[in-house]
Write a protein that binds this DNA or RNA. Structure first.
Lengths: 346, 346
DNA sequence: ATCACGCAATAGAGCGCTCTCCCGGCATGG
DNA sequence: CCATGCCGGGAGAGCGCTCTATTGCGTGAT
């Protein structure tokens, strides 16, 4: 650094006014003579002034920063913190979440700090981070249902909003999807197309969303006279989708319709079906879930249940912002409705 | 908030020592009597003290935060800032970059703030962010070669490190891959397998890496007596890979080997080839680039040129850390060597 | 002309921390 | 026995900003 950065004081001297006046101009400008405003503005220009955020934060107790936490289950193997990150972003789902959040935060000059909380230690770090006032609140996306982080945040009375309802009730706001309704749409569509031997690849059953999707699918089929539904549990990854589909096919070779709990697994299912000589959708119809980019690039393009992830993520950010501002105090749940997007696979 | 957070002062009173002593214990502990240390530690425990980072930053002029900037080309259409984010993370490449960076930062208690700089306005925001001292430096991953951000950062003398060499020389450190060598490996492998009608799907030619990969491929083939190489330009996306492969096949139906500049496009190529009745690798061999997760999940699994992205990203973070600490002052380039990973596709 | 009033602008007190300077006490050496 | 040095600990000055209390000044009512 050549010389130290200009401060309010410097600008004030340059403009021939007091520090307080410059501060007013820099911020919400109330009650400042337009001429002086202009004077100050020019002085700022000339000095290249940029307000020191640490100093501001010290008095306002705001950082205009939120923690964006991707939270894993209990203690993951030490295999790697960075492996966790890579795995997380392998699902386009998270990219969409980030997109939705950034879309909301940015116009408001709020900034996300990326944190991963896949171990007890990492969780503690998140809490400390917030307690130190380095972020005003947290946006939490859990990959597992029994994630302890939400409860920790609530106990510490730190502002936080969750993506998806926590398995055990926690006094925090969250956004979610009507997963049952989504599964219902998928079931109705498969039945309407004439499928009679249906199976499903569920998500990991320790995740509430997976349970809901499975339950919704089963309920609808039961109502249509199909009390038994073959299930293969997957892990929301492509690999697990491949394994699950193979398993399903081994057990029920006559299957003519499959509902996969996300697009990634649906893609895996399509791959297996094709390899086993089944045409999609002629021999076996496949419906996915999410309507992620995969749904479009998959061969064939997937009929899927659309989850408005970006919108949900943006809403989550908005809820947090309201909690931080104190505009909203009580925990609030916002549930979005899914819709069916029909493409080629079913 | 029930009552205000405990401060150093509170802890000092509780422990019966001075503020300075507590500060010493909290930080690098030099010259403090072990007994008093223990005393202070207990007082911290009892009060639940967490040092206010804004106050600390104000005096240390450090935030222990770095900006992680994903930088686009000139002004992207307003189509969407969040669309940009989603698009960026659609390529598993960025997930790996994030993983590598976090892997380095985390043990050092450094934190990444995610920023997207796909427009002039957004770029200005990044500069302001750094000038305000909200981050100590920037890690920049550009998606286009003519990205103006690196030059802006260098001009402002802000600490920054780039992923990939900038197209115009800029006095900043960067990490990169020996792209030519990678393409050379791919070419040699295809030739060794007996392919004689080779084509390539290049990346966007305004990206230096794409040019290098193309040049390397061409050079090697030329040296083996193949002066002409059909090229179809892609955009590193799956879609563009599909289009490019179709184009290549239309122009040169006799093609028996393809080198795609990344795995995503290689996957697209495989899809097209299969749809057109060509077996991979029997009829047409395909080599990708990156060795991303796609290479493993693709059907068939891709033979590809491995880029040690996590390692490169970690190194980038380390370079930045050194620049911030002042340990390193001159811009440094670190170039990694690729290696061929042979799977089923070639 | 006097006084109350409103508004623009200033003065100055912190926010919570680090870090330099200083002081007191003990061991050491002449 | 006193001068010297060292080391653990305290006092206090800021870091750059916001914000309340206060001053100064022009205006309209009395």
């Amino acid at each position: 650094m050549s010389r130290r950065a200009p401060t309010l004081e410097d600008v004030a001297r340059e403009a021939g006014v007091s520090r307080a006046t410059v501060s007013r101009v820099v911020n919400g400008i109330r009650n400042v003579d337009p001429q002086i405003q202009e004077l100050v503005r020019r002085a700022i220009e000339r000095t290249g002034y940029a307000p020191n955020r640490a100093a501001r934060s010290l008095v306002t107790r705001r950082t205009e920063t939120v923690a964006l936490v991707v939270s894993g289950a209990g203690d993951t193997s030490d295999a790697g913190q960075n492996a966790f990150a890579a795995r997380v972003f392998a699902d386009p789902f998270f990219g969409r979440v980030v997109g939705g959040i950034v879309g909301f935060l940015r116009p408001r000059s709020l900034h996300p700090v990326l944190m991963f909380a896949e171990s007890a230690e990492a969780r503690e770090e998140v809490l400390t981070y917030l307690r130190q006032g380095r972020a005003d609140g947290a946006l939490v996306v859990s990959t597992h249902a029994d994630d302890p982080l939400p409860a920790l945040l609530a106990d510490a009375r730190l502002p936080a909003v969750l993506f998806a309802r926590p398995s055990r009730p926690v006094p925090l706001s969250y956004v979610d999807l009507a997963h049952r309704d989504g599964a219902h749409l998928a079931a109705e569509h498969l039945l309407a197309r004439g499928c009679r031997r249906l199976g499903t690849i569920s998500g990991p059953l320790d995740v509430a969303a997976s349970q809901e999707r499975l339950a919704g699918f089963r309920d609808t089929l039961a109502r249509h006279g199909h009390p038994y539904v073959p299930v293969a549990e997957g892990g929301f990854t492509l690999d697990s989708g491949i394994t699950a589909m193979a398993d399903l096919l081994d057990r029920h070779p006559e299957t003519d319709g499959v509902f996969a709990a996300n697009d990634l697994m649906a893609q895996g299912a399509c791959q297996v079906l094709r390899e086993r000589g089944r045409r999609v959708p002629e021999d076996v119809a496949v419906v996915g879930f999410d309507d992620s980019s995969i749904a479009v690039t998959c061969r064939p393009p997937l009929t899927t249940v659309r989850q408005p992830v970006e919108e949900m993520a943006a809403r989550m950010a908005r809820l947090l912002d309201e909690h931080i501002d104190g505009v909203r105090t009580d925990p609030t749940a916002v549930v979005f409705e899914p819709e069916l997007v029909v493409r080629a696979s079913a």
